[in-house]
Design a protein around this nucleic acid. Sequence first.
RNA 1: GCCGAGGUGCUGGAAUAGGUAGACAGUGAGGACUUAAAAUCCUUUGGCCGCAAGGCCGUGCGGGUUCGAGUCCCGCCCUCGGCACCA
Length: 805
Amino acid sequence: MSSYHPQSVEKKWQSVWEQEKVYQVDLDQAARPFYNLMMFPYPSAEGLHIGNMYAFVHSDAYGRYIRLQGYDVFEPIGLDGFGIHSENYALKIKEHIRDVSARTEKKFYQQLRAIGNAYDWSRTLETYHPDYYRWTQWLFLQMYEKGLAYRRSSQVNWCPSCQTVLADEQVIDGRCERCESLVEYKEMEQWFWRITDYAEKLYYNLDQIDWSDEVKTAQKNWIGRSEGAKIRFSVKAGRQKSEIEVFTTRPDTLFGCTYLVLSSQHKLIEEFKEEIKNYDQLAAYLKQITTGSDESREKIGLRLEGWMAVNPVNNQEIPVFVANYILADYGTGAIMAVPAHDQRDWEFAKQNHLEILSVVRPAEGEWTEDRPYLEEGVGVNSDFLNGLPTESAKERMINWLEQQGVGQREIAYRLRDWCVSRQRYWGPPIPMVYCEQCGWQPVPEEELPVRLPDIEDFQPDGSGRGPLSKVPDFYQTTCPKCQGPARRETDVSDPFVDSAWYYLRYLCTDFNDRALEPKRMARWLPVDMYIGGREHSVLHLLYVRFVSMVLHELGYVPEGEPFKRFRAHGLLIKDGAKISKSRGNIVNPDKYLTEYGTDAVRLYLMFLGDMRQGGDWRDGGLNGMVRFINRIWSLYQQPRQENSSEEADRMMARAIKKISEDLDQLKFNIAIAQLMTIVNELKGQEKVAMKHLEQLAIMLGPFAPHLAEELWQEQLNKKQEPFCSVFAQKWPSYDQAMVEKKQVTLIVQVDGKLRDRLQLPAGLDQTAVEEKARASARAQKFIAGQEIVKIAFVPDRLINFVTKS
RNA sequence: GCCGAGGUGCUGGAAUAGGUAGACAGUGAGGACUUAAAAUCCUUUGGCCGCAAGGCCGUGCGGGUUCGAGUCCCGCCCUCGGCACCA
């Protein structure tokens, strides 16, 4: 009996598939298009991570299953190569990022070929390639022209040790991801994209898309929709009169408002600074505090001397404070403080000996005034709200505010505008030009791409400006409007911008004169299935939705939502521990692919647990997959027969049904367990039916594609000209009648305890089963002499005798 | 603190319209084949009692609903992931 050599077989079919273009679809003609997308990898110099492969083979198995159902599956791959991660790595090993990228690109594509996925290799893309980032810049211009890209001053994360700005994602627990220094905050002018304009749509659409629930919840939390009211307080700032607007979710507590608090960046402070009697003290204070970044969470604040606000509901004069616990960019950047019913206001009031006035108390039960009461209840000390439950008190107050013209219903979102500029080198230059005469001007579309200049020194220098600001050849330009001297933007854009639209470009890589081809978009969008890590739940997946909505409004894509279905996979760990460089337990797939073969590794990755839960990689587990493959191989060497027994047909029908259902639900692990069961069953037969071997080969396809092709072409002798792959076959079907069991194992219970198992023909009624069960010697022991008070019967499953005791 | 996911044999993990707990693997043990080893094949592998037949216990903990609970309800504990002064 010849043994199976995965390495040579896998190599053979990989080259045949590529030569025969088995996985290339005609994007303009495909009759049954199915867009199967996986998150393109961030190519680190260490090479493809086993965690990448884990995600990719699951996605591929699903794509192959869909393909076998007759769809034209488009499964593209590319590299998300721009970004600070790669750039930092290059700096660390003191090599140029361009050279590192060239090397990792080669390495990654080589590894991505080795995992045996059904990628269409004619449509790859890399975000750092000018053919790609030219259109990323085009996207920026679209945003700008639609009024969704703007500049404003904002606080950014600054690492004093690396001397560079960091993305929010690179700040872990307030520390730099690279060197663990405490991150500082710096005020800088940045480019933003107005994602907040889409907050409501981003929030409500979630109810209509078929995505993993956890991701939808995470996005809802991130967007953070809160219903409440805006209330205007008139304010006397010394000799000046003005208004302060606050946002609250508890308008019903307005009677309990005893002071106002502004964020340190509130515009009124700057506007009326001459009216602040203690301005010198305030200026020192402002220097000292950093809003929202205080690790201690200690509430530091200062009263604005000479200022008084008036509570509109009772005309009480109340003091105005500035404090570090008020966020500048949430709500209105100012709050009405109700210390009796808010934890933070309570703490601040206690510290500063401010008045605390209870205006809500529990509808029933005890209530003490030694701590804030945060729950809902009924109004007290609140005039027309007295006795009203919180819900109606809110409504009543909003009505009152609207009648008086001092406030209105308002919805606040936690979501903030997306800061897209980065003071770094390895990204697409933002295509804007600043002219002293004309202000900011977009680079004309026909001048794209604004090429990233090839410079030697790309180290950030701590000046707070990107490395491109040291390259006069780059930034010296002329104004597109007046032709006068002008300066290019030297910031590059966030790598998340690159990945916010890559799936659209896959469909158009053959067009050099446009970013997106509408006909292609119409045929292929939205993406039918997207599988990826849940770590992208809010960032990437939110940005993609936002960009897609904008492109839809601009008429480029047919629907606002980009992905019909999204499923999150879990994390792959090793021997019970998270895989990380510092633990030194990195799993390099190359070694395993060479040693055990691609199919064995693929099978193992999909067998070791439920995709959505993640799994625990243990080297020993691979042995089981090698044994499984060898058992399959020997099965195909066994004597065969043309006909099949009814019993075997029934077994196969049940298995086909089960495996199909498992794959529909992405339960790859139990689908493989089922395949193992079939193989064990078929191996027990003296002669195996040809039909069953064919069905098995096809069903192995999604998991072990090379083995499946080898079995189909060589062992089952299906070779023909022109080449016809096993993946061009039809997924096996089953007859529902064959699935039903003729014999069932019926459980006999007495008082809920298992006492006997009876082998009976299916479909017996209760009387018949009861007779058989009473006759069972084992059950008899427990029934004898007992009074039966009840019998529970589940057809074909169980009968339970309940005795009096 | 808040949100989400989860807790099942020695290990990875199966099992939800409430109905055989431990499928399918891994590991260990014993045996067959072999001069030997590897590979392969067979038996066995939740705990306790028992010579056996068989019985009792068992799905993080404590209650509850039910003829029957890993699955449903109430109250906790623990692990992992995310967010974190969001008014």
